[in-house]
């Protein structure tokens, strides 16, 4: 879900969505951090980004690609259009994000263990 929004975000998307729906930006971001989005927000995001209205619903897993009227294999075809370089950069970005999340988790874990070592 978060990846989908990142992919269609032109930098101002979040502001437009929150202006259009009246949902506070931090609530919107909180939903994305949890990797989910309410259906009405998903549709509003698609509309604000000017992409197919069903895109958000597919990304949220509410409807299948076929139900959204996408031609079979559309996703694969879109991926095939990307060059190796673009794919590598995309994978790199996602790995980087994953690495940061893991490091944060490990840091929190270490902190918790320090507390138990000293006070447990």
């Amino acid at each position: 879900m978060k990846n989908w929004v990142d992919a269609i975000d032109d930098g101002e998307l979040r502001h437009r969505v929150s202006a259009a729906t009246g949902v506070a930006p931090q609530n919107y971001s909180a939903q994305l951090t949890a990797n989910r989005l309410a259906p009405e927000l998903a549709v509003a995001t698609s509309r604000a980004a000017g992409v197919g209205l069903a895109g958000g619903l597919v990304a949220a897993g509410l409807v299948t690609e076929a139900e959204a009227g996408w031609p079979p294999g559309a996703r694969q075809a879109a991926l095939d259009l990307l060059t190796d370089g673009e794919l590598a950069v995309l994978a790199g970005e996602r790995l980087h994000a994953l690495g940061k999340a893991l490091r944060r988790q490990e840091h929190d874990q270490r902190q918790t263990e320090t507390i138990w070592e000293n006070l447990g």
Binding site: Q111, T114, I115, W116, E117, N118, L119
Partner: peptide, 8 residues
């Protein structure tokens, strides 16, 4: 001292 050490 323990508390400060525990909470890093």
């Amino acid at each position: 001292l323990r508390i400060a050490a525990g909470f890093g």
